[in-house]
């Protein structure tokens, strides 16, 4: 399943959807592409990424309405202050934005900073590792903060309750101890990195086997797009290999 694959494998499957959406302008074909993309997400275990639609759909509506108002080409739609060109363009833009947002969110969905960094060819090892390490520490700092909040609560000074002034005062009280804790942590982590030989060797996570089948399927998909004799079945021929890639 795509959800268990690297960022590169995800990009190989989802990237073609994004590029195709930029090449298409017919709302029907774009709708079909969106349906196939969502099917890929379902097959690839990335359905959770569709939660972004809660924000993407209103945004797409705004894009559609703005284009309806601004694009004044073609005949006017009966009884309405809009043109057919505006309607077509607005709908296409809205559908395109949905495909682009959904595929890019799904590509990164559930990946940690280390996986993302490790997937970037040529990225500086130390930079990517430190980016990862910062994200690794977030749960630690969050736990520290939670422990402190619980310690304050059990000692009769709950944080985030009561009038606003009290909430701010109680939260501000924890800033200094949290900063001291974080500094202590940072010192120990720095020491541990030294003691574990960080920087002696620039290791990388091997990515070779992970994305090879997806690269092949993406190539088949692009060929199907280019060689398809009929526009009406182009999207289907293009999408089927990607659906297989999502399920792998």
């Amino acid at each position: 399943m795509l959800s268990r694959r690297s960022l590169l494998a995800r990009i190989l499957v989802l990237g073609p959807f994004m590029i195709a959406s930029l090449l298409l302008s017919d709302p029907f074909q774009l709708s079909l592409l969106l349906i196939f993309l969502m099917a890929s997400l379902a097959l690839g275990g990335l359905w959770a990424a569709t939660r972004i639609l809660r924000f993407a759909v209103p945004m797409a509506l705004v894009i559609a309405v703005m284009n309806l108002i601004l694009v004044r080409t073609g005949p006017r739609v009966d009884g309405l202050p809009i043109t057919e060109g505006g309607l077509l363009f607005g709908t296409s833009m809205a559908l395109r934005s949905l495909v682009v947002i959904l595929s890019s969110v799904a590509a990164f969905s559930g990946l940690g900073a280390r996986e993302v960094a490790a997937s970037m060819p040529g990225i500086l090892f130390r930079t990517s590792f430190l980016v990862f390490l910062s994200s690794r520490l977030l749960p630690v700092f969050a736990r520290d903060a939670q422990d402190l909040v619980q310690a304050a609560e059990i000692r009769g000074a709950p944080v985030g309750r009561g009038p606003w002034r009290k909430r701010i005062t109680s939260a501000a009280r924890l800033v200094l101890p949290l900063a001291v804790l974080s500094l202590d942590r940072s010192m120990v982590i720095g020491e541990a990195m030294e003691a574990r030989g960080f920087g002696l060797s620039r290791w990388r996570r091997p990515m070779g086997v992970d994305f090879a089948p997806h690269a092949l399927l993406a190539a088949i998909s692009i060929l199907a797009w280019l060689l398809s004799p009929w526009d009406s079945i182009r999207i289907v021929l293009f999408s089927v290999p990607l659906l297989v890639g999502a399920a792998l």
Binding site: R114, V188, I189, A192, A195, R196, G197, L200, S201, W203
Partner: peptide, 30 residues
């Protein structure tokens, strides 16, 4: 060296990858 504050000696998010970190730093393949 096993630290007294060993919790912060763990640098990676998964246990297996953390244990791999030392050998990787010393030049072992994945």
């Amino acid at each position: 060296l096993l630290f007294q504050d060993f919790e912060f000696q763990l640098l990676m998010d998964r246990v297996l990858e953390d244990v791999m970190l030392g050998p990787l730093n010393h030049g072992a393949s994945w």
